[in-house]
């Protein structure tokens, strides 16, 4: 029977990344168009972690869960994880492999696909099965200005999928999941990349960006610390959480824990207010699925206005204090 395999990413903090449950929801949809193909997942993790997730896996409608546990897997390693994944994939021959388009997923997936001499479509925002039963993977290119639907001539057909694009399962699909333990064959690997340390972003001070209803974010246009103070005052006046672009973080204006974008967080608030943000794709992928976007920028040609619902052309140093005053007075 055909099989759709999902990669269960384990994060630095040793939990399973939520993108797996978004992939699961989509995979069940695809399965219906593929004669009810099996939906399975692959978990590579430190010893004992799989046990904690068995209930969640059973409720996600997985037919099979392949588990490769080893005490050497406390941190993601391209060399170990690619080897284990490739071995298992060669054995089970899935039709389709879906992986979250996180930094880990985008590091691992091309290593696997190149080794299997198959195709991989990056950072997809939509997936479907076409009339010939092929995976049709749609993704933005040219900074989101062009969409391309990509097909693959070889098996397995692989894609990485952007987190938070698909909704997670809205209700449990309970299955009699088979848990299959695979012994990792890694003893002969001479590792060339050694883990030294991991410095976690500190805890978010105002409130959590993941659950925030309104986010006020600043870019390089906020210029200096005084600018970020103005931004904070405005955020406070409307009860919003604070976010920043990588540019602002690198200028030392904001801490890394509030960075939004490609190597930061992906957020989907009700309202996103972009202040002094030009709108580079590396930032906008992290916020473009917000319900509403308001952009304030000096430059009327800034690309941020291409994705905004409401724009205001003006100097943030003048506009934001005025807005704060309006809302504080209420």
């Amino acid at each position: 029977m055909a099989e759709i395999l999902l990669y269960a990413e384990v994060t630095q903090e040793n939990y399973v990344h939520t993108v797996l449950f978004e992939l699961a929801c989509k995979a069940h949809e695809l399965s219906k168009k593929l004669d009810n193909a099996e939906v399975s997942t692959l978990l590579i993790c430190k010893q004992g972690l799989a046990e904690l997730y068995k209930e969640a896996f059973k409720n996600s409608g997985f037919d099979k869960v392949y588990i490769a546990e080893d005490n050497r897997f406390t941190h993601y390693s391209t060399e170990f994880f690619a080897k284990v994944a490739i071995d298992i994939i060669k054995e089970i021959n899935p039709e389709i492999i879906l992986i979250g388009a996180t930094t880990q997923g985008r590091d691992l997936a091309p290593r696997i696909s190149a080794s299997l001499h198959t195709g991989l479509t990056a950072d997809c925002t939509d997936l479907d099965i076409n009339e010939k039963g092929q995976l049709a993977a749609t993704r933005p290119t040219f900074g989101g200005k062009l969409m391309a639907t990509i097909l693959c001539k070889t098996l397995p057909q692989m894609a990485t999928v952007r987190p938070k694009v698909f909704k997670p399962l809205s209700e449990n699909i309970v299955k009699d999941t088979q848990f299959i333990y695979k012994k990792p064959d890694i003893d002969n690997i001479k590792r060339k990349v050694e883990f030294i340390e991991f410095i976690k972003r500190t805890n978010i001070t105002i409130n959590d960006l993941d659950s925030a209803q309104i986010i006020v974010a600043g870019g390089k246009g906020m210029k200096n610390e005084a600018g970020f103070e103005i931004l904070k005052d405005f955020a406070k006046s409307i009860g919003a959480s604070l976010g920043a672009t990588r540019g602002a973080v690198d200028m030392g204006l904001a801490s890394q824990d509030i960075q939004i974008g490609q190597t930061g967080k992906t957020v989907t608030p009700k309202l996103y207010i972009a202040c002094g943000i030009s709108g580079a794709i590396q930032h906008t992928v992290g916020m473009c699925d917000s319900d509403k976007i308001i952009a304030i920028n000096k430059d009327p040609k800034a690309p941020i206005f291409d994705i905004a619902d409401i724009g205001f052309v003006g100097d943030v140093f003048e506009v934001l204090p005025k807005l704060s005053k309006i809302f504080v007075l209420k």
């Binding site: 994060t11 630095q12 050694e194 991991f198 410095i199 890394q256 967080k265």
Partner: peptide, 10 residues
């Protein structure tokens, strides 16, 4: 990375 900075020796 999303969660912070990782240092590796290669």
């Amino acid at each position: 990375l999303e969660e912070g900075l990782e240092t590796v020796k290669v």
